Simulated assay, not measured.
Amino acid sequence: MTTACLFIHGFGGSPYETEPLYTVLEECTDWELRAPILPGHDENESLENREYMEWVSKAEKELEDLLFNYNHVYVIGYSMGGVIAAYLATKYNVEKLVLLSTSAHYIDVSQLAEDIWKMAKDAADGDLFENDLFQRYARRMGTTPMSASIEFQKLVDDLRPYFSKVDVPTLVLQGGQDGLLPPKSAEYIYDSIQCEDKTLHFLPQSKHMLCHGPEQKDLIQACRNFLEI
């Protein structure tokens, strides 16, 4: 094998967030795939007293290992993982970059309010476990330390300038109904990236959990086209 791909999950999340895309790449390629769990994010760990550079360093070590052993390395980052992925792409010889629901800006309050109302309605109707926002945050709901949230904000603030230093082919995907990130986040990232080989792809019916959303097939096809598989 000469090709590898690193997946980086989001804040408070896990590799589950990109699992459908990971599975397709696993089935359609002979690539080495890595989807590490960032420090404090395992089921038996806590985010208490974590510093954001721990998350960056974990992803960086995985990337260094892949670059040492494989000729072609791609990076796929989701949400906070997209910020880390973009930063690493400015330091290392990453050939292609995929950014999913990436956090260049903070919460879209109006959309989040609508999503919370929908979550409450689903709970009343007995459909709470079908709600994607609940699925995304059920494990961490009410347990994420304020210190960890502050570290997440520091990460976004400190690494945001690196989007303007990205000079590798990049695919940016964003949900049109994302309750956590406004569309301007994806537009900012797209405009900032220096490489001319870049694509901004909106999924109008999707929320933050792009890989598990109603336009999953569209997302996967866009990624396959971009990665040429």
Rank of each mutant, 00 (worst) to 15 (best):
M1K: 13
A4D: 00
C5K: 02
I8R: 02
I8S: 03
H9V: 01
G12P: 05
G13H: 02
Y16P: 00
E17M: 02
T18H: 04
P20Q: 04
T23F: 06
L25E: 02
D30G: 15
D30K: 09
D30F: 01
W31T: 11
L33D: 03
A35W: 00
P36I: 03
L38Y: 12
H41A: 06
E43D: 15
N44G: 10
E45Y: 10
S46R: 13
S46I: 12
S46A: 12
E48S: 14
E51Q: 14
Y52V: 09
Y52H: 06
M53T: 14
M53Q: 15
E54M: 12
E54T: 01
W55D: 07
V56C: 01
E60Q: 10
K61G: 15
E64L: 13
L67S: 05
L67Q: 09
N69R: 14
N71Q: 15
N71A: 13
I76L: 06
I76M: 08
G77E: 07
Y78R: 03
Y78S: 13
Y78E: 12
S79G: 13
G82L: 08
V83G: 05
Y87V: 01
Y87D: 05
L88Y: 02
L88H: 05
Y92S: 09
N93W: 03
N93D: 12
V94C: 10
E95R: 04
K96A: 03
V98T: 01
L99V: 00
L100G: 02
T102C: 07
H105I: 12
H105T: 13
Y106D: 10
I107T: 14
S110W: 09
D115Q: 11
I116Y: 11
M119L: 12
A120I: 15
A123F: 14
G126D: 10
G126L: 07
L128K: 03
F129D: 13
F129N: 15
N131D: 00
A138I: 15
M146I: 15
S149Y: 15
S149V: 13
L155F: 07
V156M: 11
R160G: 01
R160V: 10
P161F: 06
V166R: 06
D167Q: 00
V168P: 07
P169V: 01
T170P: 02
T170Y: 01
L171R: 04
L171A: 05
L173P: 00
L180T: 06
L180E: 05
L181T: 07
P183R: 01
K184Q: 13
S192W: 08
I193H: 00
Q194M: 12
D197W: 06
D197T: 06
K198Y: 07
F202S: 06
F202V: 11
S206Q: 04
M209I: 12
L210N: 01
C211Q: 05
C211V: 11
E215M: 02
K217D: 15
L219T: 00
C223K: 00
N225P: 09
I229R: 04
